[in-house]
């Protein structure tokens, strides 16, 4: 769904050649636009504040103002921004909001609107690289391929769309307390400074790797024949599913994954034993090369 979203920038212009907006209108228009998912930039006379950074991509910009003369034509020197100007002098707050929606429609700029049906809630892990030791526990744990590695084999969040909304489980797997979910309610997962007792608590992890159908993580580390044969036995789909159910119950009891998230998990959509094996092989390759 994120492919349907296109940046669209609104500018409230109160600088040279335009009048200041009515106080109440300025606040209500800005707040409403933000709550609908728009980005809003306010420009005043005080443009010492303005320093421009190069724009990497093209997107439409709508400049709203109570212009002293006709709304000026504005062009972007880089040729990347498609700028539209509109005079708002005769419009009330509702009229301005309608105007913004109309221009956005004309520009075909899809918006991710908070609270709307089908909106994508941004829920995904953020790695604190000051703490991360690149141990790959998160990669091996996540069933939904949220994590991957870059060319330098450094862990990174690659598929944040795949992350299960409100599930902070991987942050509890990280031995370094390096994984944050900024929208989580409590610390240190929400980004609060990490305390010593947080680190101590995280070292008492449940055996979550068994969720992948066996202790794959350590079996890959040792690459013992015994572990390999145990893994191959678990390739029976029924057995793997039962095993996963058992582990999910354990996780639920441990409080690591919220009950409502577990309730939403469709076990049949969890990775098949083949996918688990593919992931395990990828891990083995990574660990062998590092």
């Amino acid at each position: 769904m994120k492919n349907d979203i296109h940046p669209f920038q609104v500018v409230l212009y109160e600088g040279k050649g335009a009048s200041a907006w009515d106080k109440a209108e300025r606040l209500s228009v800005t707040a409403t636009l933000l709550d609908k998912g728009y980005s809003v930039k306010r420009i005043t006379e005080n443009v010492a504040n303005e320093s421009t950074s190069p724009v990497s991509d093209a997107y439409p910009v709508l400049i709203l103002g109570e212009f002293n003369e006709a709304a000026p034509d504005v062009f972007d020197g880089s040729g990347k921004l498609e700028i539209t100007t509109r005079d708002t002098a005769d419009l009330d707050s509702d009229g301005i909001l309608e105007l913004v929606a109309t221009v956005r429609g004309e520009k075909d700029a899809g918006l991710n609107q908070p609270g709307e049906k089908g909106a994508w809630k941004p829920w995904f892990p953020v790695i604190d690289y000051d703490r991360c030791t690149n141990c790959m526990q998160c990669l091996s744990f996540c069933l939904f391929d949220v994590y991957g590695v870059d060319d330098e084999k450094e862990i990174q969040v690659q598929n944040n769309d795949n992350c299960k909304t409100n599930c902070p489980a991987c942050s509890r797997v990280c031995p370094e307390v390096a994984i944050m979910f900024p929208k989580y309610t409590s610390g240190p997962i929400n980004g609060e400074p990490v305390k010593e007792e947080d680190v101590a608590r995280e070292s008492m992890k449940v055996d979550i790797t068994s969720l992948l159908g066996g202790d794959i993580y350590s079996s890959l580390k040792t690459r013992s024949e015994k572990a390999k044969s145990r893994f191959s036995k678990e390739r029976s789909p029924d057995k793997a599913l039962t095993e996963r159910k058992k582990c999910l119950t354990k996780l639920q009891q441990s409080g690591i994954i919220p009950a409502e998230v577990l309730a939403e998990l469709d076990l049949s959509t969890l990775p098949s034993p083949d996918e688990i094996q593919r992931k395990a092989e990828e891990m083995a390759k990574l660990m062998g090369e590092s």
Binding site: K2, V40, S53, N112
Partner: peptide, 21 residues
């Protein structure tokens, strides 16, 4: 003058080009 965004997390997740500015 100031910039305001609906949700930095959402923009970051989409790697919205405006985040660079």
């Amino acid at each position: 003058s100031f910039e305001s965004v609906a949700d930095l997390c959402e923009m970051a997740a989409r790697k919205d080009p405006r985040i660079q500015t």
